[in-house]
Design a binder for these strands. Structure first.
Lengths: 334, 334
DNA sequence: GTGAAAGCGCTAACAC
DNA sequence: GTGTTAGCGCTTTCAC
């Protein structure tokens, strides 16, 4: 691998001049610029970013640590991040913690060691990872989920309101016993969506106790949770599921047990799913402005890099109910 | 940020000793090890990976450049890669080229500049990116799609055979005019799946010409392609779609035009979809061993890093037809 | 077993 | 406008 000195020798200039040319300084003689560029091309020279980063003590890489790469929610979010990042001159690398706090800690450690320019994280709940991040000088933005006890810039949707809307929607449709499947304690989306559900429920005062199952945010978890609801003493006639993957699992469980949706079981899932309108019955969801979430997070990160001090911002975007067939109570079907 | 010298001073040893302790050299006095570790903890010292990478001229990061982060195919693949990488002591960062050759080139350039330990790439077709990669000393493994004219380690499925099986399956089911929606020219999966389709078709000699639409590998492309097939002079009664996202688009188009599947249109899609069995009709697919693809690619990369020279390996895994309802021709429905 | 010193490749003062 | 020089933080000979 040729170094900047090889280029300098080839072009008959100093390494400093090569550096200037490559970094777009305008105080260089056009003739020299040409010579340098020729040498660069001939040698196939590629600047060593590691050396540059060390010298500058900064990098142009953002780490985006997401809790599940298989979740379509993150797809659009990441696109939003990438679009802003690119414009601001950063490259985005994705790290998949897979809902595993240990993996999350590994990636946080890597991002810090590698002196990444910034981190955007959807926490899988590791307090240790959060602490490392907040103790470091590296700018952090929390997205989708709050950082455990974290004073950081944050972009989320109004989870509580969205969950409340979904629950009321089921009650309004005529379902009488609405259950809730939510995620792990300590993960903000799980807790807030649960709170939205319980608030809506207690406001309507339906008979019986709230029926709540906590599991992980994954498909298998949703499947198992639905299974336990089906065999519970007072079986629900509707369920609000707090994320998309668990909703898929719940639907699969209902299909396996020949439970008809929406006649025997109404279903609303949090998070949009790309094919929600293709399944039969089509799936009622609470949709988030994913792309916009990503954009906002990226903008906050750009700002935070420019201004490290200052009070953390907190952006709350609205979530929106998309009523479809899976929550359409049918009297004659009962 | 404390440096290794701060730790050395605090512990009353030299920086070299700190380095030895942190890198697990056994030739260090246990008492010193203890002092160093205490100092590390007290100062909250975190080694600067950038400096280490520069000094060692190697890193422990792999770049996995995938063509579409929204494609569930890559989800499982990435998990396979991560599991092997972690065991071998590497961290994986994902780069999303979004089927955009320009973005791909950007990420390849970043991976090379950052001196990544290795690259696993699902090419979106950029010859320039491929050339940069192959000209560099960094080990590369192509996954899912061959690198344009690339002599690199490669892990793919038998696309031609899989496409042939899918096409024959439709013909055997009784469909008479089977069309094909495939991806961009120059992307190996698009070309090979098309070839598998045409071979199977010509072997069966159905009436009429093959009906082929090329588009990108994205959902909207599939939607548009299906639309043009529906309005073509000799409208097909079945379609083989060469990837999952385009299949979703095609299904959506069929739904929008009230075309009944499988009665009026048989559908088989390449790539499994997590919810293929949840849609009605359920979707016939050609499934790939995604996790295994990822594992193999990662193993090849580990080997290649250990042994940079030597003939490139080429691993071809089988794809498997999963017949479901969308390809079940029904005589009485016609 | 431990420390001193050199240097990975680059950039940014500083001098001219 | 260009070159010389120092040094980013670490690892790794090489002495001792």
């Amino acid at each position: 691998m040729p170094t900047i000195y090889d280029v300098a020798r080839e072009a008959g200039v100093s390494a400093a001049t090569v550096s200037r040319v490559l970094n777009g300084a305008r105080t260089v003689d056009p003739a020299m610029v040409a010579r340098v560029l020729t040498a660069v091309r001939e040698l196939g020279y590629r600047p060593n970013a590691v050396a540059r980063n060390l010298r500058r003590s900064r990098t142009t890489l953002w780490a985006v640590i997401i809790s599940d790469i298989g979740n379509p929610f993150f797809t659009a979010t990441v696109r939003g991040i990438e679009d802003v990042a690119q414009q601001a001159g950063y490259s985005v690398v994705l790290c998949n913690s897979d809902e595993d706090p240990a993996k999350e800690e590994t990636y946080v450690a890597a991002a810090l060691s590698e002196q990444m320019a910034g981190v955007i994280i959807s926490s899988s709940g590791s307090a240790k990872a959060a602490k490392s991040l907040l103790d470091s000088p590296i700018p952090v933005v929390a997205i989708d989920r709050q950082l455990p006890r974290g004073e950081a810039d944050t972009v989320v949707v109004d989870n509580e309101a969205g969950a409340g809307t979904a629950t009321r929607h089921l009650l309004d449709a005529g379902y009488r016993r609405v259950a809730c499947i939510t995620g792990p304690e300590g993960v903000s989306t799980a807790d807030l969506r649960l709170r939205g559900y319980t608030s809506a429920l207690s406001a309507c005062q339906p008979p019986g106790e709230p029926l709540i199952v906590r599991t992980d945010f994954r498909e298998q978890g949703g499947y198992d949770a639905m299974g336990s609801l089906l065999s519970s003493a007072e079986r629900p006639d509707a369920v609000f599921v707090a994320n998309n993957l668990m909703t898929v699992g719940a639907l699969r469980c209902l299909a396996d047990h020949d439970v008809r949706v929406p006649a025997e079981m109404g279903v609303v899932g949090f998070d949009e799913i790309p094919w929600a309108d293709l399944v039969r019955p089509s799936l009622t969801t609470v949709a988030q402005p994913t792309y916009e979430l990503g954009r906002m997070a990226a903008r906050l990160l750009v700002d935070r890099i420019a201004t490290p001090a200052g009070r953390p911002a907190r952006v709350v975007l609205p979530a929106e109910l998309r009523p479809r067939q899976s929550s359409a109570f049918q009297h004659n079907a009962r």
